[in-house]
Nucleic acid binder design. Structure first.
Lengths: 216, 216
DNA sequence: GACTGTGAATAAGTTCACAGCT
DNA sequence: AGCTGTGAACTTATTCACAGTC
């Protein structure tokens, strides 16, 4: 039961399961049932079983899932068993905040290079991460085996930046520019458009209507 | 053809249509067809017509949609015809970056108050926005008719903060804390969990599989 | 002739319900 | 007895296809 193209909705839930498993590990819980995971994640137990079953039969019938084994499997599936290296393009306010956020928290995905046009920033570091010229992007990304790009450049250059990232070998892009970038065969794109979030939430803030249940 | 509960997926597309309409207005385009909107937004023309039809018959058969009229309608539907006021809780790096971002761009949704626990920050301003003590939340939110909350507090206090916001009368929350907050009858919640975005994208960055097409 | 508005068909994702191990 | 893995039923969202209007 492999190779059916796994729904993105499933992929998005995996890190949530992983987060709960890490908490359980800290609490020295050895085995967990899908029903208990359901309580802790807010998803249904069937959903959790179905999600996990896409990747193999990790559970034991009548018992449940081994916390440490399932955690290992999820990290492997997500590619987090090795360090994932990322580059950020656009050292403005948001880019700086994201870098600081990343340096202080994540160990899994690590920003190890920043690119910016501004000659005043190139050659400096932000939170210990070196800032390079856009011109050096191809070399830096290839030499450091960077597979993820984070776009915090202005709207008008986002498209061009994304193209450069792809050309340099990046396979996934997290785009914060207010422009919709699309996934292709060679790159997966996720857009986080804050203006859109604010404006669509305004609908619920002001109107009578109610209730999305939106994940991230 | 009203009152069927409009899908959140539709609500999320409205600001995208609005953005394109604003560009068209700047270019002095008076009328636009759903087919042209489709090209400019990346959604299908049927989807666009269906989305708009939820709210009424705004178009003219054989002609298209009036750019300025449709823009007005969308702003009204989203509640952006009046200024939407928001409060941000948690004046850390991300909170500061979002405030700066907001002050410099949006006119529609405006952060007019910041709340934080740290006595060193209370009484100061960030980008001209006053920082208040959490204790004053209820009064400040009610007195200023604030209807949206932005949570950039740490994970362990996010839930509590959200509850305070709701109690003070906030109707929509944009949550950046790495905790899933849920919508209820009295509040619409949208979660932006950056850790989850990074970790789920790692799947596409490292694996063979491909292609989400995710909006924000 | 061109383009909207919409019921019907399809696709995608979730929940149900139960057979199958341990 | 308990809990997983999964086909079948259902629900939700998107695409098709066309009648209706200008």
């Amino acid at each position: 039961m492999r190779r059916i193209r796994i729904p993105d909705a499933t992929i998005r839930r995996l890190p949530i399961y992983l987060r709960v498993l890490r908490e359980l590990e800290d609490d020295n819980v050895a085995v967990i049932s899908s029903a208990d995971l359901a309580i802790r994640t807010g998803f249904s137990s069937e959903q959790i079983r179905k999600d996990l079953a896409y990747f193999g039969a990790f559970g034991v019938r009548g018992v449940g899932y081994s916390v440490s084994q399932l955690e290992d499997q999820l990290r492997r599936i997500l590619g987090l068993d090795k360090e994932v290296r990322a580059a950020l393009v656009g050292a403005g306010n948001l880019g700086t905040a994201l870098t600081r956020y990343n340096v202080n928290r994540h160990k899994d995905v690590k920003i190890i290079a920043i690119f910016d046009n501004d000659p005043a920033k190139v050659g400096k570091t932000i939170e210990g991460v070196p800032v390079y010229s856009i011109e050096d992007m191809d070399a830096v990304i290839r030499n450091n085996d960077i597979k993820m790009g984070i776009v915090t450049a202005p709207a008008n250059s986002a498209e061009k930046v994304a193209e450069l990232l792809v050309r340099a070998g990046v396979r996934a892009i997290l785009n914060f520019a207010p422009v919709k970038l699309s996934s292709t065969d060679s790159v997966a794109v996720r857009n986080i458009d804050l203006t859109l979030e604010f404006e669509s939430l305004a609908y619920y803030a002001t109107g009578e209507e109610r209730r999305p249940e939106t994940g991230s």
